[in-house]
Design a protein around this nucleic acid. Structure first.
Length: 357
DNA sequence: AACAGTCTCAACCGCCTCGAG
DNA sequence: TCTCGAGGCGGTTGAGACTGT
């Protein structure tokens, strides 16, 4: 049993929209508002199906839509949300005001996915590619410069994966050099190359997040084995990096990270007493605050997100929803939910090289 | 200049969800 | 509880643009 297509009318136009059609649609929606898409074509005098009108409006004509290059901050948010949510483009779009799910999807498929592959990361699982240790990768690939690697990799249908560790991949892929090894000035670079240059900050930050996850995983494992000292602080190193972070473009993301991370809070703001009586040295007030902020349903936070630009991101909402379903008072369960999530998701960063952090 | 290969992204397709009746 | 339809979502396509030879 197959559903009847919604657009089966005679003489309905398909393909690219003309300026005239756009004008008609904009004019109609300005006058009557959105909704009732099925009737809009007839009322607006368009030979299009309602669905096509809705897509044209929501993805292109809506006045608040932001177009053009994605900022490095937006890229970072997309990558991290994709890691926690997968291909939930509409969910990701809710965290990027004025960007459409279609635009984010396209940007992921044409840019970010390739970049992760080049870094040796599986864009689906966000874990290291199994072929990372593939000894058949040609030696000369390791010395590809930025200007050539972008095209050689992306244009090849049998894209090779790099066998170098992530940090060295970053150096290899993102350094903007010409074929003779001399630096390429911004003016000489095409937009795509600029994107690559920008992405190095994304990579640095992701490395930091990965390092953080690893240290937390180790601490949690130690905790489960009963070998963790009550005063152990496994956030110091990471928070120090965050505090020293000079790249202001990452400020919003760092705030996001700091807010979703109850461990980080205690070391970023040492004036707050840490309750060291708990196994993990977690300040319960902060943890409760964290759960309160991030355990809410996405839809109820919509306004909140809009008011706070990138907002309190539900980057880790999987775990926050999971653990928030338990009583905050029941700290054992809460910590278990949190730690299980970390243990489940931290493995993929095993092979990361943190020397450059 | 011409051609071929590749990339980009707007638009389409088909399935899913959810609310109304 | 079931059916229907509008709207929403994610995957895919293809025309035009771009780049290299």
């Amino acid at each position: 049993m197959s559903r009847k297509p919604c657009c089966v009318g005679e003489g309905l136009k398909k393909g690219a929209w003309t300026t005239e059609e756009d004008k008609k649609l904009i004019s109609y929606i300005h006058e009557h508002g959105e909704g009732g898409w099925r009737d809009i074509p007839q009322k607006a005098g368009l030979k299009r199906c309602g669905k096509s009108c809705r897509l044209r409006w929501t993805n292109y004509l809506k006045p608040e839509i932001k177009r053009g290059e994605f900022t490095s901050e937006e890229e970072q948010i997309i990558i991290m949300l994709h890691a926690s949510r997968g291909n939930k483009w509409s969910v990701i779009a809710r965290h990027l005001p004025r960007r459409t799910d279609n635009e984010i999807k396209n940007y992921w498929n044409t840019h970010l996915k390739k970049r992760l592959i080049e870094q040796g990361t599986d864009p689906v699982t966000h874990k290291p590619l199994a072929s990372n240790t593939n000894p058949t990768v040609p030696e000369n690939l390791h010395s590809l410069d930025a200007s050539s690697s972008d095209k050689q990799y992306s244009r090849s249908s049998s894209m090779p994966t790099m066998s170098c560790p992530p940090s060295s991949c970053f150096n290899t892929v993102f350094e903007n050099t010409s074929k003779d090894g001399t630096p390429v000035h911004e003016d000489d670079s095409l937009s795509r190359k600029k994107r690559f240059k920008k992405s190095s900050s994304t990579s640095r930050l992701l490395n930091k997040v990965a390092a953080k996850a690893t240290s937390m995983k180790e601490a949690l494992s130690a905790s489960m084995e009963g070998s963790l000292n009550a005063n152990t602080s496994f956030s110091n190193s990471f928070s120090e990096q965050i505090r020293n972070e000079e790249d202001s473009s990452n400020a919003s993301l760092i705030n996001t990270l700091a807010e979703f991370d109850p461990f980080l809070q205690t070391t970023l703001y040492p004036e707050h007493e840490v309750n060291t009586t708990s196994d993990l040295g977690i300040d319960q007030d902060y943890f409760s605050h964290f759960l309160e902020n991030f355990g809410r349903d996405d839809d109820h936070n919509e306004e909140h997100y809009m008011n706070h630009n990138y907002g309190h991101d539900l980057l880790m909402s999987d775990v926050s929803q999971e653990v928030s379903s338990t009583s905050v008072d029941d700290q054992d369960n809460t910590i278990e939910g949190w730690s299980n999530y970390l243990l489940d998701h931290a493995d993929f960063i095993h092979d990361m090289d943190y020397d450059s952090l």
